[in-house]
Amino acid sequence: MSELFANYLAVVAMVLFGIGFGNLLLQKNLIKKIIGLNIMDTAVYLFLASMGYISGRLAPIITDGDTDARKYVNPIPSGLVLTGIVVSVSVTALMLALTIRLYRRYRTLDIDEITLLARQEHNE
């Protein structure tokens, strides 16, 4: 139990990941699915950022000529988070664009209803 409290950031990240994953998988509303996707990705960023942070240390930007590695936090997780954010923004944009096209065509955001309407359209 004490490990859970010591690593509370990782625990929160995993809970958030689960919430996001569940929403992306189970929600019927496309917008809610996209929100789920973003929660899921953000959880990963929290996890990565918490892993890279060491309390009491500085951001790895050398200002006063001090190159002692022990004064700074690990920069790689921050780099990974930035890359991840770029990826997640682009897939979110793509999903939203798809949602808009589906909405214009079928006037609903419910994926089950859209499936039904598309099948009817196909059979006509």
């Binding site: 992306l24 998988l25 496309l30 699915k33 897939v91 793509l94 999903m95 798809l98 949602t99 096209r101 589906l102 065509r105 079928y106 994926i111 859209i114 499936t115 309407l117 598309a118 359209e121 196909h122």
Partner: peptide, 13 residues
């Protein structure tokens, strides 16, 4: 087509 858009959405999800 509507079905392609739907297929693409399902694929993306």
């Amino acid at each position: 087509w509507g079905r392609n858009l739907l297929a693409a959405t399902k694929y993306m999800i």
